[in-house]
Design a protein around this nucleic acid. Structure first.
Lengths: 335, 335
DNA sequence: CTGTTAGCGCCTTCAC
DNA sequence: GTGAAGGCGCTAACAG
């Protein structure tokens, strides 16, 4: 069996209480005792049982991060930032995947928040809205990632999807592109991010007096490279191909770039391509990808800070934090 | 406060024991009692406290996965497979990052294995060898990812790095390339993977009677896109550029591809480029990347199965599992 | 400054 | 088939 607090106490001839005080670096321990206890700890190679401590204290110093898919670069880069920042706060991160399915989001949230395993949850939700979340009555704080869509009862951290899309399309219009296709429109109203980005696109078109072309708005639920590849092929089957493509994430855009390369379509000469997220890949692709994305480190910082705040007992109304985003103009959109 | 087992018991008028039996689906509960208890559970919305259960049972159903960096595609794709397979086994995965630093690997391993938090650890080690690990005397099972380098005391799951590198270089030699550069050689003997891959390269050269060129063997500790980019630039400064480049992972290779594109060097016409890992990106890059990699799903399956086996108490000598690998010949190496 | 006591919520050995 | 009691390892009250 593992060495326990009692073993150490017995060895030194003090009470468990005193050993606990030393381990937790509390006051009211005489220097001499402290040294003797520490010696016994080292000698016996004692490690406190974190499970017991958590049960006793009612907190675990573990937080859960729920993302749709860990192998999608945006989420893995986000998880990386979370793990880094969590460490500075003394927190461990438990990562799990929801696949974006609403049922799975609800189930994980329910289990995690109500079984004592974690002190809080950061959820990158797809299916679940802030409003729906309220009905679940989680027993630990939850921070939602993604833009506020109204009526949320929990803190949210996101960026201005509408504004970002608007800026992106404005950039394309400035470069003289008018027939603009979209890859990644949602198939149902549940996909908030998708809808917001689409809204931004339409806003920019309208502001410029350029017609919105529904026939060039392509739907897809999965946002992987292969989806961008497949949908780009569809877009080329029409009589008049688009002059620019706005993909709703970078890997969709990279899939599209690949297909255009295979078809001998020059980017950006014949068609400009843009994405969302600003993943590392988009700085190294051929051509490099114009994209717009939030500061991920800032998302990690803001969401963890908000969560820690709530864990510490901060009450008050739900807040919505918007982190800044930046448009990165690269080769795929400028001649 | 949260609803406890006692609350449910009190509500129904039975002992906690009986409620526990229902929750854990044990025998020896009369159907009538079971129904009544279940009704109370639903009504009170009871969820067992997993912390208390773990403390009592001595097992948590959580395993830790330690990877160097979660934002490196190979590791995020691996983590994805782990999470998927772990779920089928009823396990939750706690992911943490080591940055590949030996001290951090040791520290995390020590804390995780000895504080009751997890039932086992899967470690994708860079700095730590199987031998060194034995000295740490972990109190929960550990499975090491990466090829066995001799004298390990724990189970390992990996693939034949030497054979894979040999096959890759043989492929390049077949295509008539002789001046072969390497990106990713290690700077110290600690980097087992790097050394094994280098060995495979040299084996293939020797078998073909082609001289090994140390001046084209480039060292780097970090294996990111920017490193491949930077080192490829260095390789072009020599009087005679290489005819092929073997990068020790795909992102290094993708960085090299990008630089070659910028310099107007045709791939594979002027220089062939290959990687390791077979990440999704390499199927969509321009050009697509020739690479060799293991079956990641199989790595996840084998390592989790081995870990579960040990957690269940299986003794016996350490085993080394080798999963199959496949050479994927793509555009970057064939004219 | 340190010891004693109690209990976090659960499961499990013993009784009945 | 069910109840009572004990303890996993730790820390928080309360003494002294």
């Amino acid at each position: 069996m593992a060495v326990t607090l009692r073993d150490v106490a017995a060895r030194v001839g003090v009470s468990p209480r005193t050993v606990s005080n030393v381990v937790n670096d509390f006051r009211h321990v005489s220097p001499a005792t402290r040294v003797r206890v520490q010696a016994a700890i080292d000698e016996l190679d004692y490690r406190p049982n974190l499970l017991a401590r958590s049960l006793r204290q009612g907190r675990t110093a573990v937080i859960a991060l729920l993302v749709p898919e860990l192998d999608v670069p945006y989420f893995s880069e986000l998880a990386h930032e979370m793990v880094l920042h969590a460490r500075t706060l003394g927190l461990t991160v438990l990562v799990d995947e929801t696949t974006g399915a609403r049922a799975r989001e609800v189930e994980l949230l329910d289990v995690l928040t109500r079984t004592g395993q974690v002190d809080g949850v950061i959820l990158s939700a797809i299916g679940l809205s802030g409003r729906a979340l309220a009905g679940l009555r989680p027993t630990v704080p939850v921070v939602l990632l993604g833009e506020r869509t109204g009526g949320s009862s929990v803190d949210q951290v996101g960026f201005d999807n509408v504004g970002a899309a608007r800026q992106l399309v404005a950039h394309l219009l400035e470069r003289g592109r008018r027939r603009i296709a979209v890859i990644g429109a949602g198939t149902s109203s549940a996909y908030a991010t998708s809808n917001l980005r689409l809204q931004g696109c339409r806003d920019a078109l309208q502001a410029a007096g350029v017609p919105y072309l529904p026939e060039l708005t392509m739907r897809t639920e999965r946002w992987h490279r292969s989806d961008g590849y497949r949908i780009m092929a569809e877009l080329l089957t029409g009589d008049r191909p688009p002059e620019a493509v706005v993909a709703f994430n970078d890997v969709l855009a990279l899939g599209a770039l690949r297909l255009l390369h295979e078809r001998g379509v020059a980017v950006p000469h014949d068609i400009a391509v843009t994405g969302f997220d600003d993943i590392e890949d988009s700085r190294f692709s051929v051509p490099t990808l114009t994209t717009v994305g939030p500061d991920r480190a800032e998302i990690a910082r803001q969401s963890l800070d908000a969560l820690v705040d709530r864990i510490a007992g901060h009450a008050g109304p739900a807040r919505a934090v918007r982190v800044p985003f930046r448009l990165r103009v690269r080769e795929s959109s400028q001649l």
